[in-house]
Design a protein around this nucleic acid. Structure first.
Lengths: 231, 231
DNA sequence: GTTGCAATATGATATATATCAATAATGTTA
DNA sequence: TAACATTATTGATATATATCATATTGCAAC
C-alpha cells in the first residue's frame, strides 16, 4: 500500500536543481511545507484514469507505467516514466481529469505538490514558468518521438528498439530485469504476446541476447543496433 | 513565394482572445510592433527541419503539414496544424533547432513573433505563462492521442479514422478536397499508397463515400464511424 | 498540342503478422 | 503440498498487409 514517508527538506533534495533552483526562498518554503513524499509498492496504481487532477507529481525513484484503457480492445501501454519525469505529463495543465492510468512497475517514490500552489507560483514566477515550459515540452517530445519510432518498425525492429531503450534509457546496463510481462511489452510496442516471445527467442538463438526469465542480457549491441536501424 | 503582408493591429486580431487577452498593454504593444504576418503559397515550406528556432509562430488561416525526414526510409507525416495551432509545437521551448519540417498544404497565413520577446513576456507575465502552458499541453496531447488512435487500427479503420478527422477536425463538412496526395495520406497513417487507394475504392464501391479526384464526400457517416470504431 | 512525369488505379503474389491450439513453466492461494 | 491461475513457449495455419507489375489518368513544361 502507498504510504507517506518522512519529509526531507527540498533544500537537500537531489532534484531541487532540476526544476526548483530558481524559486524564491518564500515559494520554496511553501512547497517544502505542503509537499508530500509518497512511496508505492510494485504493481500499485498511482493514478487511475478519470480521477480529478489536483496534484503536480514527479517521480523521484522507481519506474512508472503510463497506460490507457481502451474499452473492450484492451490496454494501450503508452510509455514509461523514469526519475525526474513529471506525471500527468500532458494533461496536468490542460485537463480536469487524468487521461491515463499510472502504475508503479518498480517500487517508486514520488513527490506530490498541490497543483493550485504550482499554478500560483507559475503565475508569480516567470523564470520558473519558462523552465517548466521547457521541461514539459521536452518530455512530450520524447514520448511522441518514441511512439513514432516504434510504429514505423517491423516486429524485429520494435523488439530491438525496446531492448535498447531499456538498456540505455532506463537501466544504463546491458543486463537488466524486464519490469513488465511479455504481454505488456506487446501492448507497449503494438504487437502480439506470442510474437514478442518468438522474436526474443530468435534473438537468443542467434546469440544476440541471453534470456533467463525476466532477466535479459544484451550480448551483441552492434547486431541489435543494426536490427533496430534496418528492420 | 512567402511574403510579408499588411499588419493589422493585434487589438483587432480575431485570435487575440485566444492567447493574448491577459497581456499587459505595454507587452501587447511590443508584440504588435515587432510581429510579422506572413503568407505562404500552397506547397511552400514554412520551416525546414534543422533550422534554428528563433520565432514563435502560430497559424492564422490555412493548413500546415508537420513531417520529419527519416533518412533513406522516406518521410514520416506526423500530423496537420489547423488555425490557432502553434508551430514548432513541441520543440519551441526545449530545442535549439526544429525537429520537424512544416509545409503549407493550403495557402496559409501565419503570425511570427520573436521567440526572445515571447520568453521575456513569459518571464514577466505569469498569467500568460500559465495560459501558454495550457495551450501547449493540450496541443501535445491531441497529437499524441491521434497517433495512438491511428496505430491501433487496421488499414480500413485507419482510412475511416482519417476521413472522419478531415470531416470533423479540419473542414467541418461531409464534402471536402483532400489537401494531400494518397501517398502522403499513407505516410500519415502508416500504410502503403496502393492500400490507401484500394480501400478508398472499396468504400466507394460500398457507397460509403464518393470520390472525384481529390474531392471526397462522406455518404454514410454511420457506417464509416462503425468501421473506424470496430476495425 | 506533345512529351514527360507524378498520381491514381487494379490485380497477382509474396511476406509479415495475427490467430488458434496445445503444452510447459512459474507463481499464488488454500 | 496440491490445485489453480497466470505467464511463457512453440508450432501450424489464417489473415492482413506489402510488394511487384502494369495500365491509366491528370498535370506541368516546353
Amino acid at each position: 500500500m502507498s504510504r507517506k514517508v518522512n519529509i526531507n527538506s527540498c533544500n537537500v533534495c537531489a532534484y531541487k536543481s532540476f526544476l526548483f533552483s530558481s524559486l524564491h526562498a518564500k515559494d520554496l518554503t511553501r512547497v517544502n511545507l505542503t509537499k508530500k513524499e509518497m512511496e508505492y509498492d510494485q504493481g500499485e496504481v498511482v493514478i487511475r484514469q478519470g480521477e480529478k487532477i489536483n496534484k503536480f507529481m514527479y517521480l523521484k525513484s522507481g519506474l512508472l507505467k503510463i497506460s490507457q484503457d481502451i474499452g473492450t480492445v484492451g490496454n494501450q501501454f503508452i510509455g514509461l516514466a523514469t526519475p525526474l519525469d513529471f506525471i500527468g505529463l500532458l494533461s496536468v495543465f490542460s485537463q480536469e481529469n487524468y487521461q491515463y492510468t499510472i502504475t508503479a512497475v518498480e517500487p517508486s517514490s514520488m513527490c506530490h505538490i498541490e497543483l493550485e500552489l504550482m499554478k500560483e507560483i507559475v503565475k508569480r514566477d516567470g523564470t520558473f514558468a519558462l523552465k517548466l515550459l521547457e521541461k514539459m515540452s521536452s518530455m512530450n517530445e520524447a514520448i511522441l518521438r518514441n511512439r513514432l519510432q516504434i510504429n514505423r518498425r517491423n516486429l524485429r525492429g520494435r523488439i530491438a528498439y525496446i531492448l535498447l531503450y531499456f538498456c540505455r534509457e532506463v537501466y544504463q546496463s546491458n543486463k537488466f530485469v524486464l519490469p513488465v510481462s511479455r504481454k505488456e511489452i506487446g501492448e507497449l510496442i503494438n504487437m502480439r504476446t506470442e510474437n514478442v516471445i518468438r522474436i526474443l527467442s530468435e534473438f537468443r538463438k542467434d546469440k544476440i541476447i541471453d534470456i533467463s526469465g525476466k532477466e535479459i542480457t544484451i550480448l551483441d549491441t552492434g547486431r541489435i543496433q543494426q536490427i533496430c536501424d534496418f528492420g
